[in-house]
Structures are given as C-alpha cells and as structure tokens.
C-alpha cells in the first residue's frame, strides 16, 4: 500500500473500564453501534483500533439489498437523521465478512457482534443461522429499523407479540451455536419495558436500546422532505434523554438482563449517564461524526478521568446507580 500506514496500537487494558456482557468479557464498555462504519472487516478492525470494546457489524438480511438513494444521512442541527435503508450484501456474504473480521480482530481483545434483520420470524432464524457460522461473540437481532417500513411493514419492535415471535424463532439457532442473542428495541412505543421483557421471556439474553427515533426534516425551499426515504431515524444529542429513559424503564422491568444502552453518547459523561440509567455497555454511533473517528478513544479517556475524580474503581459502582 502506498499510503502512510496507520499505527495499530490497541488501547492499554485498564481495569477501570473492564466489564462483561452476557458472559463476554469486554476491555471497555464502548460498543460500535450497528450501521456505523461496520460495512467491512477492515473498518470493523479500525473501530477496534480506535477504542471500541466491541464492534457491531452492519445489519444483514436474508438477501442482498441496495438501500435508499441519497440523501441518506445528514446533520440537521441538533442531531443527525438517516434513512440508509439497510443496504447489505445478504447473510451469506455477511458471514464471510464476519469471519474475516474475526481474523482481523485477533489480539485486539475486541468482541464481535453480528447484526441481522428480516421480514418474517423464519427469515430472521435463517439469517441468524447463516451469520452465526462466522462465530461472532454476540448476535444482535434488529427488529426496530425505522426506515424500511415500505418493504417490511411495521417493525416487530412495535409490539410485545412481534418482538417475542422473532426472539422465539431465533432462540434455537442461538442456543445451538452457543451465542447470546440481544434484541434491539425501538424507542417509539408506549411500553418499551414490557416489549423488552417479552423478548427476553421468549429467549433473548440481552437488550440493545434504543434504535434511532423516527423523524422527518423538510426543506422549506422545495417543500420536500430531504431524505429520499422522506422519514428517517434521528440520532445524536437530540435523542440522549429518550435513550436514558428507555434504558431506565427496561432496567426497572428486567433487573438482571444485560443492556447495551445506545443513543446520543458523545462524551464520557454521557456514557456514565447511560450506565447509571441501567446500561451494562454503551453503544457509540453518531459520536464518530461529532468527535471524529477516534470518538471512542476520547470517550473512554473521559470516563476514566471522571471515575478517578470521583473515586470510582469499577463500572459496577456506577451501573444502575439511578435506581438506588
């Protein structure tokens, strides 16, 4: 390669940030969120070198998908909005990508999370079976993408029965592979705690909360929604309080279930806040825009500085604190 090689230095192990997620040890609680640069094995490795404790690949479906036409994502001022439309190479190709990522992540002490979506519970199970051949550490089941309504109808995350039907279909596949299943839930429901509880009762091991919040931005000059898909998912600072409350409610309903809390985390303080709400680990996405590709390194440093300033020696001292 002709270009300046980037030094691959893995962040120093620091006891302050170690945690575990459904039995998977993490060197730090920061999880690269699905859909954020997780489109190739090399980018997943870069996320690891840039500070992630775990990396989530882009969600894959049963068959290849092209995704929406641009504009698919932009900064509207107080947050981001996106409707990328789940472009992906299909589960079979995704399994190869994940296997390659596994190789590249060797020695990085970074966990690999596969992510799947589909239109029916059976297709979820098929996609799961295919991607689990690559032996990821965790499988995230995305039942909550807000941007593929035209193709897939109402997300399974919209109801207790929908969430449970997918969890029940995928459970035998995950059990056979020995891979814990996390269900990714949506914020725009009146009863996120009950939906999460039913997904767990049907076989889920953990919850990822939250997916982006449905929204729309209209250009008043043309009178048209800016995203080609018209509506999209809002992320970034705008949704942090929504995420905090959703995580809090899920933790109240499910005291012992691992939760990847995701939504608007830009700083170490944000990450601590989500942990206090009940998150076990913290997803990071839009921050790679707000703070640069090394956002997770910066957030990790800020968490450690905060913990030291407050005499906190391990994450368990802050996890769930808002419930005490």
């Amino acid at each position: 390669m002709g270009y300046t090689c980037r030094t691959i230095t893995y962040p120093r192990e620091d006891a302050l940030l170690t945690t575990s997620l459904a039995g998977v040890p993490l060197r730090n609680p920061l999880v690269l969120a699905s859909g954020i640069i997780g489109t190739s094995a090399t980018l997943l490795r870069r996320a690891a070198t840039l500070g992630a404790g775990a990396v989530t690949a882009k969600s894959a479906g049963p068959v290849p998908r092209i995704g929406h036409v641009n504009p698919i994502c932009f900064d509207w001022g107080e947050g981001l909005i996106n409707a990328v439309g789940l472009p992906n190479p299909g589960a079979a190709h995704e399994a190869a990508l994940l296997a390659e990522a596994r190789e590249l992540l060797q020695g990085s002490e970074t966990a690999l999370i596969a992510s799947i979506f589909a239109g029916t519970p059976d297709e979820f199970a098929q996609s799961a079976e295919t991607v689990l051949r690559a032996k990821p550490d965790i499988l995230e089941v995305n039942i909550s993408c807000p941007n593929v309504h035209d193709d897939f109808g109402e997300p399974f995350a919209a109801s207790c029965a929908g969430a449970a039907s997918v969890a029940a279909a995928v459970k035998p596949v995950c059990d056979a592979a020995g891979v814990p299943m996390f269900i990714k839930v949506a914020p725009n429901v009146p009863n996120i705690g009950r939906i999460a509880a039913d997904a767990i009762a049907a076989g889920g091991v953990g919850i990822t909360a939250i997916n982006t919040m449905p929204g729309m931005v209209i250009d008043i000059e043309s009178g048209r929604p800016i995203l080609t898909n018209r509506s999209g998912g809002v992320s970034g600072p705008a949704i942090k309080p929504i995420a905090v409350r959703a995580i809090y409610e899920i933790r109240q309903t499910l005291p012992d279930v691992p939760i990847i809390g995701t939504g608007g985390v830009n700083t170490g303080a944000d990450a601590i806040e989500l942990l206090m709400a009940g998150a076990t680990a913290v997803g990071v996405g839009s921050a790679l825009y707000y703070r640069g590709l090394d956002a997770m390194t910066q957030i990790g440093e800020e968490m450690v500085a905060w913990m030291q300033a407050h005499g906190v020696r391990q994450l368990s001292e802050v996890q769930n604190r808002a419930h005490q």
């Binding site: 980037r6 840039l50 500070g51 509207w76 001022g77 250009d219 640069g292 090394d294 030291q308």
Partner: peptide, 24 residues
C-alpha cells in the same frame, strides 16, 4: 490519566463542516 494511549489519528476538517442541504 487517559487509559487509551492512541494518538489523535484523524484531525477533523476545520470549521462548521456540515449541516442539512441548504438552497443556494
């Protein structure tokens, strides 16, 4: 004391570098 010893690999572009598409 930072835990993560990575250098700041990627300087960000200067200035307000992004927003919604605006009519010109």
């Amino acid at each position: 004391m930072p835990t993560n010893s990575l250098p700041r690999l990627i300087p960000r572009p200067e200035g307000a570098f992004a927003a919604a598409p605006r009519p010109v």
